[in-house]
Computed example of a mutant assay.
Amino acid sequence: MKLAVHDRYDYIPLDDRPVYDWPGGKRLAVCFCNNIEVFSFLDGLGTDSTVIGAPQTTRNFAWRDYGNRVGQWYMFDLFEEFGVPASHNLNSLLMEHCPQIGEKIKQRGDEVVGHGRTNAERQDVLDEAGEAALIKETTDTLAEYFGTRPKGWLGPYLAQTPVTLDLLDEAGYDYVMDWPADDQPFWMRTRKGRILSVPYSIELNDSPAMVFRQHSGEEFERMMIDQFDEMLLQSRKRPLVYTAVLHPFVVGQPFRLRALRRAMEHILKHRDDIWVTTPGEIAKYCAGLPEGTIPGS
């Protein structure tokens, strides 16, 4: 059997790559990646709290809506308490339905990442023209609301078509987080140039962990701490990126928020040894490194 290939990047094993530092001589970058999403009532796609693939109901719509009405505001308080920047993967229709969240993000100066129009749909079922229109609509809405275009993209459900990377590059995006293939950034080829892949965890991610695999808040806390401790140790040898992926309708529930608080306390005790940052700052820093430093350059 001959394997199908994508030709977006080459295989470069971790030990064959140049070693470099993050700002301040740090070796571990830490990002808190927050997903803020809106869903269509009794229609389209949407996560369910109890049954994978369950039909859309008032119950599971309301459970997700809790995140925007309540959980996200708890999380804003937590980010402010610890004094950490956050990046927010935003559905653009959020600006129409929950504008106060956008105003709070403006006030905090957090990073905004394009995350499609809504998580009630996927982009990988669209033709090229339809996908290009989705990217443009998302980009234009966020740019108009926040006054600047998003530089990064995370597709709803991390779903891509064979031309997504090309369309994002052509739409002016600098980086994507849809390819969880690495703990370091790497360049990916597009039909007209390249785009950076910034690490984004689907393992250290509250939705698959606590919704689909039914881990408890305490188990997710242990995952966050163990992932951090091991990556901090591994980063003595090479630069790495630690991402904790959060959703306000999941980890914004108070009993889970308490576990997240404990995990963040543990991580931020090491603040002198880590670079607490955002995916956009990582992409900007990588773009300024000499050619040949980042895999694929």
Rank of each mutant, 00 (worst) to 15 (best):
D48Y: 10
D48S: 13
S49M: 13
S49W: 13
S49K: 14
S49T: 11
S49Y: 14
T50V: 14
T50F: 14
T50E: 15
V51S: 07
G53T: 03
G53H: 03
A54N: 07
A54T: 05
P55S: 06
P55K: 05
P55L: 03
P55R: 06
Q56M: 12
Q56S: 14
T57G: 05
T58M: 14
T58E: 13
R59P: 03
N60E: 06
N60R: 09
N60Q: 11
F61L: 07
F61V: 00
A62N: 11
W63G: 05
R64C: 03
N68Q: 06
N68F: 00
V70H: 12
V70K: 11
G71D: 02
G71F: 02
Q72I: 12
Q72T: 08
W73E: 09
W73S: 04
Y74G: 04
Y74K: 08
Y74I: 04
M75Y: 07
M75E: 08
M75S: 03
F76Y: 05
F76C: 01
D77K: 10
D77S: 07
L78D: 03
L78A: 06
F79Y: 08
F79E: 08
F79M: 09
E81V: 03
F82V: 01
F82P: 02
G83N: 05
G83V: 05
V84Y: 00
P85E: 00
P85H: 01
P85C: 01
P85N: 00
A86C: 09
A86F: 03
S87K: 00
S87N: 08
H88G: 00
H88E: 00
N89Y: 09
L90F: 10
S92C: 06
L93D: 02
L93T: 04
L93K: 02
L94G: 00
L94S: 03
E96M: 08
H97M: 14
C98L: 08
P99I: 05
P99R: 09
Q100P: 06
Q100L: 15
Q100E: 15
I101D: 04
G102E: 02
G102S: 08
K104G: 00
K104A: 11
K104H: 10
I105G: 00
I105T: 01
I105F: 02
K106M: 14
K106F: 12
K106D: 11
Q107S: 13
Q107L: 12
Q107T: 08
R108L: 15
R108D: 06
D110L: 04
E111D: 07
G114N: 01
G114K: 00
G114I: 01
H115C: 08
H115D: 09
G116R: 02
R117P: 06
R117M: 15
T118P: 06
T118D: 01
T118R: 02
N119W: 15
A120W: 05
A120R: 01
E121G: 01
E121K: 12
R122C: 11
Q123T: 12
Q123N: 15
D124Y: 13
D124E: 11
V125S: 15
D127N: 15
E128G: 09
E128K: 15
E128H: 13
A129S: 14
A129I: 14
G130R: 11
G130V: 04
E131G: 03
E131I: 07
I135V: 14
K136G: 03
K136Q: 15
E137R: 12
E137H: 10
E137F: 13
T138E: 11
T139V: 11
T139N: 12
D140I: 04
D140G: 12
D140E: 14
D140C: 11
D140L: 08
T141L: 12
T141R: 13
A143H: 05
A143K: 12
